[in-house]
């Protein structure tokens, strides 16, 4: 009770407290609230993952179509650029009357931001195959389908992975805004604690979001090395 006299309330505190109201970060408080943060972290992961997977499912085939039919490229770029440039909060609010309040709206908005980068990177990757590599493959007797699967796709992979890396980090950070629409992810704690002068809550949620982005980034870098071992091969090294 004495705390109230000294300063602002420490939110949701349990029975015991070694925390002071003006402390930057209080581990006890965090440990006490870990369940809540863990639940939000898990939500954050799947909200982001769903958006990224759907983004890939749309952008990869679209890039393949644009690779085969170049006249499809401009409309696809214009469309995904428009989605990309709408401010994310505006996008959320715009979608609510159409898709309601919920995960669906969140995913539509998040997917909208993944498309441009994934599409452009994939298309660049597909087009990066050296013409002589294609010519040799064709002349040796690979069918167009085999060239696509065995040559073009693997050679496009580094560009796709580079796009995926940026998109993943971006999506994780954009997903913190999803809580404005519906109660999902670490954004909930951020919104909840943002006005409070006891800042451990805000720091916990913020740092967890950053850590999540860093871990996801590291995983994708590792995955990239795994699937494109040749990309690092240089003369003299292996």
């Amino acid at each position: 009770m004495s705390l109230r006299l000294q300063g602002p309330v420490i939110p949701d505190f349990g029975n015991t407290s070694g925390c002071k109201a003006n402390e930057t970060f209080c581990w006890d408080w965090f440990a006490d609230h870990w369940d809540r943060f863990a639940a939000e972290l898990v939500q954050h992961v799947y909200v982001s993952a769903i958006a990224i997977v759907i983004g890939l499912v749309i952008a990869l085939p679209a890039a393949l179509v644009a690779y085969r039919l170049p006249r499809f490229e401009t409309p696809a770029v214009v469309f995904s650029t428009i989605l990309y440039t709408i401010p994310v909060l505006g996008f959320f609010l715009l979608m609510i009357p159409v898709t309601g309040i919920g995960l669906f709206t969140i995913e539509i908005a998040l997917v909208g931001y993944t498309l441009l980068l994934l599409f452009r990177n994939t298309l660049t990757g597909l087009r990066s195959v050296p013409p002589e590599v294609r010519a040799a493959a064709l002349g040796m007797g690979l069918t167009p389908g085999q060239i696509l699967v065995r040559i073009t796709f693997p050679l496009a992979l580094p560009a796709v992975m580079a796009g995926l890396r940026v998109v993943t980090v971006t999506t994780i950070s954009l997903a913190t805004l999803a809580a404005y629409i519906a109660p999902y992810g670490l954004g909930q704690s951020i919104l909840f604690y943002i006005g409070n002068t006891f800042i451990s809550g805000l720091i916990s949620a913020g740092v967890l979001a950053i850590l999540l982005a860093l871990v996801a980034d590291a995983l994708i870098v590792g995955l990239t090395r795994l699937v494109t071992p040749w990309a690092r091969a240089r003369r003299g090294g292996a």
Binding site: P130, E132, V133, R134, A135, A136, A137, L138, G139, M140, G141, R150, I151, P154, L155, L157, T228, W230, A231
Partner: peptide, 16 residues
Amino acid sequence: RRDIGYVIQQVGLFPH
């Protein structure tokens, strides 16, 4: 084509 060996100036080895 599989019965004919094909070699070009730019080689065209598959880099991956």
